[in-house]
Nucleic acid binder design. Structure first.
Lengths: 346, 346
DNA sequence: GGATGATCCGAGAGCGCTCTCGCCTCCCGT
DNA sequence: ACGGGAGGCGAGAGCGCTCTCGGATCATCC
């Protein structure tokens, strides 16, 4: 029946406690300057009436919303299909709720959505934004930046438009890739191939860079471009086997492609890791543990990334409202370390 | 520098267009009763000033927020770890944004969170709630119902407290399970085992019921309780093999457990599907396609579930504000069909 | 003991919007 | 040509809150 009972207002609480609205407001918001006996009376009135402040009214005057938008671009892509997203979100959520902020989720797929998001942000419904923009040339970052909202990006945005004040959190894709390749070298492998991710994503580009850092002057035929899908992993592996039958190791830019490569390797009678060692990236569970053999891979702390993004944003918000200095020396990028997880494939 | 430029107000637009606030409001909200030339002038003023309505001010008077909460309980569990969640969320998001509603995401993990969520909902920040409550005995559903907010549940809530007006969307777990088992029978299998999910979740219980519907009077030793994890799948499969070495088919309550079972089967030298046919549930990509052999499984349209949940809620919201009749004859549960996806494992 | 702060509390304005109400205009019928 | 009705538009109140400012209260110091 949802017979919406009119919720008690500040006024009502004030009347019940026999004080003014201002006093109730002070007590409710934890401001000092109210003597104990009075404050106690107010608290009791709040309790008895079940008073809960009306956020809309409060926002109207404070111009704060205690809400931040989380914008995920193009959820069709892999990032949405895998458990990453959920983990990241959990990290964000934890940090946000710990600071009494709400999480408004915006998923975008096409240009129309972008316009809508732009309007939404400009509309001043939220205090800041956390943005996951996956592709180079995505118009979203610029759009958002223009809205003038404090923003933190997830993953290094390849945003030509001047990365001056751009704050982002990323994991150490390049360093992780280096670790993976060095591990392979340490295993005595020398003909190491790389299956890249979709190179219009900075993570893929960075992993490729990491590979090259270690394998300077490697045979260019040992690098095949993929797109993060298992099918691409299979295709790339077949191509590699054709080009360089003598290869003894493969570093795939993610676990999904590594799984695909594993299948093709088995199909061709190559034993893993005896003949060919395989390393993935992401430590995407449950994939990495379910392959045969289980995958050696590079793990990133997804949840911590989310947490950190939220933390950086909240810090920014505090500063914007209190001390309006800085806006220049802020650490523009935070890179989280990765760890190599050894399983059976390498 | 984010030098927040004071955003134009209705007042400003009115001044610029040379009309009253009321008229601008009418135009902005699409109400009729404004003659064209005037309306056009207003629209131009809106355009020129880049006016965007202040949602807080609007909510203050309309008591509508055009926002709904999506509450996900205990994201530690499997549902959060797999891609389901993201898909569902996408469905919800699409439907919501199509109707200009915002999505406020609330993830809860423990009792404290429950209290917080309760307060939040009672606080009247959102117009309704979409709730994913996974476990039987979860206090959340009742809490929410008490808040008196229109609510739609994802998955059949096993909520003893009277499912009178409870609206939920679920997929046909029982029917899907029946299809899976019948498919196995159709393959000429007769000694069919079942690995259940965590039976404190209605989905697992329903799938077990479906299994029993078809396998009436089956040897009880052919049913082993699992918990939806791959490890449980392995353990259960081992146990089954010990108990009934002659089994010729396994129906696992989800793909993760099926994958575990597959491994154990291979380890014991049983060929799939020749010796033992295996069927999973969920069609969880990329797992189902990556196993060896690829998994025959029961697919549910996750995204559609999300969409439908949102649609039902929005419908409810409309009704609450406009026609306050009904509140009795509403369809309390909507069950979405499942489809069997044939791959190589059965 | 009276002036002097310091502290506590209330009055009141105002945030940006919606919505009712009443006035004014314009069109129609006769 | 005039009365009446309908429809377009503006004035103003008020949603529930915060916050400034001034008045009241009380302790403190000479």
């Amino acid at each position: 029946m949802t017979e919406t009972v009119p919720r008690p207002t500040l006024e009502a609480v004030a009347a019940r406690a026999g004080v003014s609205r201002a006093t109730v407001s002070r007590v409710v918001n934890g401001a000092d300057g109210v003597r104990e006996p009075l404050a106690e009376r107010v608290r009791r009135a709040v309790e008895e009436l079940g008073y809960v402040p009306n956020q809309a009214a409060r926002s109207l005057v404070t111009k704060r919303h205690d809400a931040v938008a989380v914008i995920v671009a193009e959820p069709e892509t892999r990032v949405f299909a895998d458990p990453f997203f959920a983990r990241q979100l959990r990290g964000i959520s934890k940090e946000l709720t710990a600071h009494d902020n709400q999480l408004v989720l915006l998923l975008t797929e096409d240009r129309d959505d972008h316009a809508r998001v732009g309007r939404y942000l400009a509309g001043g419904h939220v205090d800041g934004a956390l943005v996951f923009s996956l592709h180079i040339d995505d118009p979203l970052p610029e759009l958002i930046q223009r809205a003038g909202l404090p923003t933190v990006f997830g993953g290094r945005p390849d945003w030509s438009g001047g990365g001056k004040g751009v704050v982002y959190v990323d994991s150490d894709n390049r360093g992780g890739a280096r670790d993976a390749v060095r591990h392979l070298l340490g295993l005595g492998r020398s003909r190491i191939a790389h299956i890249t991710g979709a190179l219009d994503q900075t993570s893929a580009a960075d992993r490729l860079d990491g590979f090259r850092d270690v394998m300077v002057g490697a045979d260019p035929r040992l690098v095949v471009e993929g797109d993060f899908t298992p099918a691409a992993g299979e295709r790339a592996m077949r191509e590699l086997l054709g080009r360089c039958p003598g290869l003894d190791a493969v570093f795939a830019a993610n676990d999904l492609m590594a799984a695909g490569a594993l299948r093709v390797l088995r199909e061709h009678g190559r034993r893993v890791p005896d003949d060919v060692a395989v390393v993935g990236f992401d430590d995407m569970l449950p994939i990495a543990e379910q392959t045969d053999p289980p995958l050696t891979t590079v793990r990133q702390d997804i949840e911590e990334m989310g947490r950190l993004m939220a933390r950086l944003l909240l810090r920014d918000l505090d500063r914007t409202t209190s001390a309006p200095e800085d806006a220049g020396g802020a650490p523009s990028g935070v890179v989280l370390p990765t760890t190599l997880v050894r399983r059976a494939s390498a």
